[in-house]
Design a protein around this nucleic acid. Structure first.
Lengths: 193, 193
DNA sequence: ACCTGAACACCGTTCAAGT
DNA sequence: ACCTGAACACCGTTCAAGT
């Protein structure tokens, strides 16, 4: 563990300003918001943005650290309050709602489970995969989830559900609907919990 | 029905060249391929591209007309050969495989079920929603699909599955896997057909 | 050590001028 | 009727010059 040594006062201020501007811009324009515009709104040269956040991904990750951590904490919270199966379902619901509502968050959560089979090694990837793993393990022990489902698969499906919702452009109840379809399956609705 | 009157010879040739270049570019770079580049490779001024295809969407649609029609035809083909439930599953599989493999096709199919509850009124939207409706109706009569599932929901889920696969960046068997998860649901694997 | 902003390459889109 | 390509506005990224 190397502890980052303190930034110079102006650097620290710029860092903060950039983050504020980024959060606002991502909220307004989605994850494709103009980086140049973010720098301008932060009152900072474009080079400074790149110094602090070398890639768009890095900026996105920094902008949503709080939210991702809150999501992870929420998982453990739900695990304490509800039976495993319900906790898992409710967490998935909140995850998807967040992804639909907070523009840019979906992109970040998606990139946390992109590429190889495993989760990406980033703070966001670690936090969210950890939460999913804990919920999934408990539900599996309870026997309410298919045993072969992996955390990454689960998170990818959540991302997929969010995508399906987006196609409907804000239809109310879309998250619940598509989540129901995916968790229950497409077969005939006979005896179901 | 108004029949388009024949294009001037040079216009016709440019139209064709643009399509060829577009198919190639979309295949190589995905649906975000540079329009300027497509015009250049077609040996045509950029204004000409906009004259023939006013939007990127229009170009995308034109580039994949054949493929979309083939998909629709394939649905009826499968409906003739297989029991409804199997025909539906197999069609979904081929739809997703196509969306994963042919860059740009996913985007087009997605936009065919974007926005309001109904399908978009475009040749592509009509063809693909028609096919989905026929397969779904048959399966419903047979009782192998939940009765409340709509064609647009089905197509959005297919789009969603494709998205999940993309996150895995070409893992073999991903389409089959995620399609299985979505069609069977995430519950415990007990008695299943 | 950090910041600035000009510079470069690229893209989408429009439109006056051409044939 | 159709085509061309310059023009404009915009964006991402780099880097020499500054403090």
């Amino acid at each position: 563990m190397t502890r980052a040594r303190p930034m110079r006062a102006d650097a620290r201020r710029n860092h903060e300003r950039l983050l504020t501007a980024a959060v606002e811009a991502f909220a307004r324009y989605g994850e494709r918001a103009s980086l140049d515009d973010i720098a301008k709104r932060a009152g900072v040269g474009s080079g400074t943005l790149y110094r602090h956040f070398p890639t768009r991904q890095a900026l996105l990750e920094a902008a949503y650290t709080d939210r991702v951590e809150a999501l992870a904490a929420r998982a453990d919270d739900l695990a304490r309050r509800l039976p495993p199966g319900e906790a898992l379902r409710e967490w998935l619901y909140e995850l998807c709602v967040g992804s639909v509502q907070v523009r840019g968050l979906k992109s970040l959560l998606g990139s946390a489970v992109t590429d190889g089979g495993g989760p990406v090694d980033s703070p966001c990837g670690t936090a969210v995969t950890g939460a999913a793993t804990r919920l999934l393990d408990a539900a599996r022990r309870e026997g309410t989830v298919r045993a072969d489902l992996t955390p990454v698969e689960l998170l990818r499906l959540a991302h997929a559900v969010t995508t399906a919702c987006e196609l409907g452009h804000g239809e109310p109840g879309a998250v619940r609907r598509y989540l129901t379809l995916v968790t229950q399956g497409l077969g005939p609705t006979a005896a179901r919990g």
